[in-house]
């Protein structure tokens, strides 16, 4: 009797479960079916390989033979016995430290200049945005090589003033700077976002401020900047991540060597060399995961400190 009652409860519960499932399916099934191609891509092409690379980072793997488990040896070697790891860290951090602030300042400057309701604004926006579309491409890196080579355009221009310029891209003192300039030149996408942010600031605030006799500079400092901090925050995080990931310009300009004397050995370029020039997939995977952690730390730090300087004014 009790057993039968239990059984009937189970059946009822099962029915209820099924009907919940089928109701869920009826409501969301089509949506999930539409997501399937993306889900396959995400699990098969992004998450799957990422997890495999995490496993490989604890192995030695040369693509032809089976991976050999080595524990944390790859990570230990990085911090104890790899001068190139240290060199590539120095290059990448210098690049991030200089290129991101310079690029953001430049983008903000141009955005403020463009925000004054001039004629032909869409045209200017498009023109200034163009480098961002082209900048990471191989063609631009090749162009940069021509511009900053020993007898490139830059030195031809300097020659007009009697200055004999060095070969910028192949001199270890300047080569990283040519890449920073290339990065700053691609200020278009943060500029567009700044421009959108500037449009959000109510005009009556400026009116009130100028009635009170505030100077242009004071208006910028007291109104524009504080109200723009959410956009600055967003741009800073995105551009920092982009800068850590920079690869193509250094690869093309140094011919894949990171030279001269490792002066353009970006972290991603070193990772590429280990993986695809020397076939140390295990070590390269470990390098990739260290980069993930570094970028996560930077982003986390930015979010943690944001409550002290980012104003969400509602």
């Amino acid at each position: 009797m009790t057993a039968r009652a239990d059984a009937s409860i189970d059946i009822a519960a099962g029915r209820a479960n099924r009907s919940v499932l089928s109701r869920f399916w009826e409501r969301n099934g089509a949506g999930y079916m539409f997501l399937v191609p993306w889900l396959i891509g995400f699990f098969g092409l992004t998450l799957g390989p990422a997890l495999i690379s995490l496993y490989l980072s604890f192995t030695n793997f040369d693509l032809l033979r089976e991976p050999v488990w080595v524990g944390t040896a790859n990570y230990v070697r990085m911090v104890t016995a790899d001068p190139k790891f240290a060199a590539s860290m120095r290059v990448t951090f210098s690049f991030v430290l200089f290129s991101v602030p310079l690029k953001l300042c430049f983008a903000l400057l141009v955005a403020v200049a463009l925000n004054r309701g001039m004629r032909g604004l869409p045209l200017y926006r498009a023109v200034f945005y163009l480098p961002s579309l082209l900048g990471a491409s191989v063609a631009i890196a090749v162009l940069w090589r021509q511009l900053f080579a020993a007898d490139g355009l830059v030195n031809m221009f300097l020659a007009n003033f009697g200055i004999v310029g060095p070969s910028w891209i192949s001199n270890p003192n300047y080569s990283l700077w040519t890449l920073i300039v290339l990065s700053v030149w691609q200020f278009g996408s943060p500029m567009i976002i700044f421009l959108a942010g500037l449009r959000q600031i109510p005009a009556d605030m400026y009116e009130a401020a100028s009635l009170d006799g505030a100077s242009r500079w004071r208006q910028f400092y007291k109104i524009t900047l504080p109200l723009l901090t959410p956009v600055i925050f967003f741009n800073a995080v995105v551009q920092t991540i982009e800068a850590f990931k920079a690869f193509t310009p250094a690869f093309i300009i140094s011919g894949g060597t990171g030279g001269p004397i490792n002066s353009t050995l970006f972290y991603t370029l070193y990772l590429y060399q280990e993986a695809f020039a020397y076939f140390r997939m295990g070590y390269a995977s470990a390098l990739a995961w260290v980069l993930v952690v570094i970028v996560a730390l930077f982003t986390g730090f930015a979010f943690l400190t944001s409550k002290f300087w980012v104003h969400y004014d509602d």
């Binding site: 080579a149 020993a150 060095p166 070969s167 891209i169 192949s170 001199n171 011919g255 060597t257 030279g259 001269p260």
Partner: peptide, 14 residues
């Protein structure tokens, strides 16, 4: 000079 030699990528073109 070294900054010119550094342009050489050991290809015919460079």
């Amino acid at each position: 000079p070294p900054d010119v030699q550094a342009l050489d990528q050991y290809t015919i073109e460079t």
